[in-house]
Design a protein around this nucleic acid. Structure first.
Lengths: 150, 150
DNA sequence: GAACATAGTTCAGCCAGTGAAGTATTGAAT
DNA sequence: ATTCAATACTTCACTGGCTGAACTATGTTC
């Protein structure tokens, strides 16, 4: 976040927050780079990652935490590039399922490979440290974490 | 990031990444809420936090990781609200330093108070856990972390 | 003092994302 | 069976954060 001091009443808490932001910034940068490496925008890459199995557009919107209307444009672009097809959902003809084409699956594979093999932060830690970090994160999120009341 | 499975070759690494994103999302949401609570946009609030001491606009841009041109508009808005003044840098008459007014300092105080007292994630951990988390984050960022080469 | 670099500003424009209105379909209540 | 409300997606107008290029003013170097 910021290198120099923000005079916060709790220096340790401040450093944790700063480092969480920094960790996230690094991950985001890595993700952007990954997306760009295969010629996608960030939300397009996100969508591709979700499509390990066919999903309805509304589900994509839910997982991307955006409005369904936004998914339309993303799907348009990916469809035009030939990475996915819209096919009608057999259970509900209002809904459309996004299904990866062969070239879409290929692209998704490359996306995952690139994303994983160069992931910052976690790749620096040894197995014990990773486990420790994970359990602390779980703990920190067990209460009032990501699902904090609005 | 996403609840259901992305078939990643390293489930533990995946969960760490997901939880880091989740932690960050929670912090961001908290920050947005904080900014909104005092009537600022997110980048405005960020700028206010930086201004514990007078800073040149270029420095702000550096710390916000954005282009200097973007800072102009932020400073315009904050200046118009009476939270800061642009004053010429005594060392370089091209540069302008942003200096908080009295009401700006007051606002910044409220911002810090709100930000700190309700900070999610860290507030759940006990002191030992916080220390452990911090040292792991430091470790993870000691190499190729936030300062990854562009 | 000429040439080049730097600090900030202005402006046009991009892209992610929202929200409202519209179409098609579904399901429930009459 | 018909009607009415809810749902899935689309379209479109719009906002807001941000970039990049062109410009002014000042600083630096030779």
């Amino acid at each position: 976040m910021a290198e120099p001091s923000i005079d916060w009443p709790d220096p340790e808490g401040q450093e944790i927050v700063e480092r969480l932001f920094a960790a996230d910034a690094a991950l985001r940068a890595h993700f952007e780079e990954t997306a760009a490496a295969v010629g996608l925008t960030v939300p397009q890459a996100h969508t591709m990652l979700q499509l390990g199995q066919p999903l309805r557009m509304g589900q994509i919107a839910g997982q991307l935490h955006c409005e369904p209307s936004h998914v339309t444009g993303i799907a348009d672009a990916l469809e035009q590039c030939g990475f996915l097809r819209r096919e009608p959902d057999p259970d509900d003809r209002r809904a459309k399922r996004l299904v990866l084409t062969a070239s879409g699956q290929d692209l998704r594979g490359r996306l995952l490979a690139y994303l994983f093999e160069r992931a910052p932060i976690i790749s620096v830690l040894n197995p014990d440290q990773r486990t420790a970090l994970l359990s602390l994160l779980r703990l920190a999120q067990s209460t009032g974490g990501p699902r904090s009341p609005r």
